[in-house]
Amino acid sequence: MKAILNHIAVAVQNLFFSLFFFFFSLFYIPIATSVVFVLSAFIPHRKTMWMTRRAISYYGWLILHCAWPFARVRYKDKSPEDREGPFIFICNHRSASDPFLMACLPYEAIQIAKQWPLRIPVLGIMARIAGYLSIHEMTVESFFEKASQLYNEGVSMVSFPEGTRSGGRCMGQFTSAIFRFAKRIHATIVPLAISGNEDKPPKGSLLLHPGVVHVHKLPALRWEDYKDMSPFKLKNHVRNLLQEEIDIIENRCEQDI
């Protein structure tokens, strides 16, 4: 009986979340895009870009909070001394909710995505305006050029080097492009460990399951820390750091249960 009630509660919460998500996206994104478009005529381009990125971040923040209390996000900055960006955030990738979790980051940031997220109607257009990079639509050199320009402007970037959602607790192999880029421009890398959202929603589903999502910002790796590593070694080093942190989070979570 209790199990049935739980299923009903989850279904009702998902229904409310889905309705909010749909209608909020339907209104917020076109309004925010229009406001930014109109303001762009009166304010400098750099400021317009900042506003667009903030608008996307607010959107993500509100989506995250409307899933409360049955899906909660706990952000932990394990290196508060690393405040001066820009950074290249390297995240593991379990779920379609990962890009929304980036709203936790108090930095002006763009995300590096595959083609399809940037083809979502309206949201994709806004992301393109904000400078999100579609890595599969450009050559490596073109990506390096555009990403360098953004980084030099002080814009952080978020990368999911697994390339696709793992859908579970195992982390896939990393691709090296973002690490080659970091080495070339002497960027600061910040690993960002995400745990608990592999079922929010699971791969191939839209249903959110109750629970807590942990987002942990780890200590920064500066150029001096990794300059002697090859891109291959660097990507595996960051992958190991993320795996260690995820193991800590998930062991602790299992003990809590």
């Binding site: 490596v140 192999q173 090296s176 492009a177 090859s230 990507k235 595996n236």
Partner: peptide
């Protein structure tokens, strides 16, 4: 080479 050893297309160039 890709799945077990973790190389990608850029690593293969190296």
């Amino acid at each position: 080479i890709f799945d077990d050893l973790g190389l990608d297309s850029l690593d293969v160039v190296d």
